[in-house]
Design a protein around this nucleic acid. Structure first.
Length: 428
RNA sequence: GGCCCCGUCGUCUAGCGGUUUAGGACACCAGGUUUUCAUCCUGGAGAUCAUGGGUUCAAAUCCCAUCGGGGUCACCA
């Protein structure tokens, strides 16, 4: 148990829409803060105006909201805190830790010895000081670089745990030296392993790697994304438990984060997504499905959605699953016969029998339809498969649909008979 | 290339010197349920624990070397 108050931060630079690695960082920050009843802070590291990409700050807010990583403080902007950086840069020159070099202020790294620290994830890390060059702290335009700004902000904002990607390991000696020179206690460092693409290259830097908003647009649930991200570099039971945020907070353990890089496996994300979709209740699922469903397809949704729930991996798949309820394209004769595996005459006779049966059915419910047509099929020369597959084609135009009698009941008597008539005409 | 980190089934991982013929999950394959698909259930295949040396009565587990992968060497973060 940590003695000091836990305060974590996610500190993105607004240079594009955050990718999945940033989201995992934020999740770990969030879980750690919440586990110890601490605070999670958002800070925008906007010191490189040349690389600024409009919209990326808004995207960050959106992603935090989507994934439920709600900051307790912030956003803070580094460009609004320049006075602090200048003040401490001066102090560093005065005490000999930094020097001015053609307008920029650089740190004076020792040329001998090692900088060693205990990283909560990586364990003991030791880096020869001569490997670290005199990094620029304050650029000649008066704007700080990352190295100066993080140290000052993390200290001033009382950050207890710095969770960041492993790419920062080699510049940690710079930060440590700054803490020492300023007389401050450094935070606990946690350098997370990287998330790699299927080609084993760092995910964020790869061309074509999707950002978090794209996953949202494809119909991945925030719960599924968080769940998936947790198990990338962290292990709990068999890494397949469906966990809510609350449960994640409970089981998260900052001492058990893996050291090795992890490959992003979309199939695992799909697994969590389909599991989470099954877990949602119908009204919740309907609400989330709404943005994906064709505006004109609203009728009977409360009956249709329960039928497709178990067939959904991503929310965006919904339209392909339910389109036949709203539009009908007559099957080809070839398709119809292939599925009845009977002559045109026998198939025609079977579909006519169905039509006659359904026409007089008063209680147009799945159970009644089932009972009626099962009896009719028994009297026919067709096997259940032959009979109902051809009927499925005749009524929905598709080979794959939810349970047939449920579909027929939802379509209603009038629509079903009309479609049946169209298919019968085909065979004549 | 220098430096730093990592290396258990395709993937995420359990494993912390003997209980391991290395366990689970995803994916894959087969079977069952089912009028289709999916769900669900059962089973299967899949890792000589990167390789080679040590240490030890005993090593995936400790040590060394090699190889492989990643990171980093900007007035970018």
């Amino acid at each position: 148990m940590t003695k000091t108050k836990v305060r974590t931060r996610i500190a993105p630079s607004p240079t594009g829409i955050p990718h999945i690695g940033t989201a995992r960082q934020a999740l770990f920050d969030y879980l750690l803060a919440k586990k110890y009843k601490g605070k999670f802070i958002l800070r925008i590291e906007d010191t490189d105006q040349k690389r600024f990409v409009p919209g990326s700050i808004e995207a960050m807010y959106k992603i935090n909201e989507f994934l439920g990583h709600t900051p307790d403080e912030g956003p803070y902007f580094q460009t609004k805190r320049l006075k602090f950086y200048k003040k401490y840069a001066k102090q560093l020159i005065k005490n000999g830790t930094a020097y001015e070099d053609e307008g920029a202020i650089r740190i004076k790294m020792p040329k001998t010895g090692y900088t060693t620290w205990k990283d909560l994830i990586q364990g003991k890390i030791s880096i020869p000081n001569e490997e670290v060059d005199d990094k620029v702290l304050l650029k000649s335009d008066g704007i700080p670089t990352y190295h100066l700004a993080v140290v000052i902000d993390d200290h001033l904002m009382e950050i207890s745990h710095v969770i960041r990607g492993a790419e920062w390991i080699v510049s940690t000696p710079v930060h440590l030296l700054l803490y020492q020179a300023l007389g401050w206690t450094p935070p606990i460092f946690m350098h997370t392993p990287l998330i790699l693409g299927p080609d084993k290259a760092k995910l964020g830097k790869r061309h074509g790697a999707k950002n978090v908003l794209q996953y949202k647009d494809e119909g991945y649930l925030p719960e599924a994304i968080n769940n998936f991200l947790l198990y990338l570099g962290f292990s709990y039971k068999d890494n397949s438990d469906i966990l809510s945020m609350k449960e994640m907070i409970k089981i998260f353990n900052e001492n058990k984060i893996s050291k090795s890089n992890a490959i992003f496996d979309i199939q695992k994300l799909d697994y969590f997504n389909s599991k989470w979709i099954k877990k949602l209740n119908i009204s919740d699922l309907t609400k989330r499905l709404t943005p994906f469903i064709d505006k004109n397809w609203q009728k009977n949704l409360s009956k249709i959605i329960p039928l497709v729930k178990d067939r959904l991996t991503k929310l965006s798949e919904i339209n392909n699953l339910i389109d036949f309820f709203f539009k009908f394209s007559t099957p080809t004769q070839e398709n119809l016969l292939a599925n009845s595996q009977a002559s045109p005459a026998i198939t025609l006779s079977w579909l006519n029998t169905v039509k006659d049966n359904l026409k007089d059915l008063k209680d147009f419910q799945p159970e009644s339809i089932h009972e009626l047509l099962k009896k009719a099929q028994g009297l026919s020369d067709l096997s259940p498969r032959q009979a109902f597959m051809s009927l499925r084609l005749a009524v929905t135009g598709k080979i794959v649909t939810p349970p047939l009698f449920d579909c027929i009941a939802i379509l209603g008597k009038k629509e079903t008979l009309s479609r049946l008539q169209k298919s019968v005409t085909l065979l004549k």
